[in-house]
């Protein structure tokens, strides 16, 4: 697969509407997607469950293309106070205590089916959208940070200062908690998350985005065919982000 095809769904739309290149795609897959693509006034539906597959064998230590793409996409800045700066996605380097095997992987909100952050949120600001994306409604977040205490993945950040220069599609501000949105604004227009696009553009293809519920989706196919694991599987949260090669 060349880079153009495997990157975002948007590419597909341009191609499809032009009526070309359908043959270059996996047969059937994209046609189903086209039929399912949600209209602007249609709510997200439980028919889909968006997820990510992280192929740890393809992820390289020192590469942070996904992290920079996320920071650019959402306007996450550097205040020179790293302990309080928000990080929606981070690279984690691992060394096996016994064998010395070295691994590197991205870690972000795992978009649990049973998210502890949603359970503990007193106002219901932490919520899970019908299509499985776990979000913070910053209009009702009071900044109590109980969700940060509850998250097993340390996926959430609290905004410790006034912000300026926010992006239109990524409102963020002091006193509220935030985390990876799985690029919900892109997903809503049938594109993949910025990290996935960046990983593909960097030639790694360690991140696969798709619909877990759709048998024909490349993500669902790969999840069905290979062994993947959830982080903190002992908590039985049924995460939408799965890791292969860990």
């Amino acid at each position: 697969m060349d880079m153009k095809n495997s990157s975002p769904r948007r590419t597909f739309f341009t191609q499809a509407s032009a009526g070309v290149a359908l043959l270059a795609l996996a047969p059937g897959v994209r046609l189903v997607d086209l039929a399912l693509a949600r209209a602007q006034d249609e709510p997200a539906s439980a028919a889909q469950r968006w997820g990510l597959l992280v192929d740890v064998d393809r992820c390289v230590s020192g590469c942070d293309a996904c992290v920079s793409a996320c920071n650019t996409e959402h306007g996450l800045g550097d205040s020179e106070r790293p302990q309080t700066d928000a990080q929606w996605i981070r690279k984690v380097d691992l060394v096996d205590h016994n064998t010395g095997r070295q691994l590197s992987l991205p870690l972000m909100c795992q978009h649990c089916e049973e998210p502890p952050c949603v359970d503990v949120c007193p106002t219901g600001a932490s919520f899970r959208r019908a299509d499985g994306i776990v979000l913070v409604d910053k209009h009702t977040c009071i900044g109590c940070r109980y969700c940060m205490m509850a998250c097993p993945y340390k996926a959430r950040s609290f905004i410790h200062e006034d912000l300026t220069g926010q992006k239109t599609h990524a409102p963020r501000g002091k006193g509220a908690v935030e985390s990876c949105t799985l690029c919900v604004h892109r997903v809503d227009r049938d594109e993949s998350p910025a990290c996935v696009e960046a990983c593909t553009d960097a030639g790694r293809e360690a991140l696969v985005f798709g619909d877990i519920n759709d048998r024909n989706d490349p993500l669902a196919t790969q999840l069905a065919e290979t062994t993947t694991r959830e982080l903190r599987a002992d908590l039985k949260l049924n995460t939408a982000v799965r890791y292969r090669g860990l």
């Binding site: 106002t123 009702t140 109590c144 006193g175 509220a176």
Partner: peptide
Amino acid sequence: DLGRPDRLIVAMTHYNFKSIFA
């Protein structure tokens, strides 16, 4: 100590009954 103490009214009007905080 809340991030948004000005939104106390939200805490009084929006409840998630699964939350021990609530």
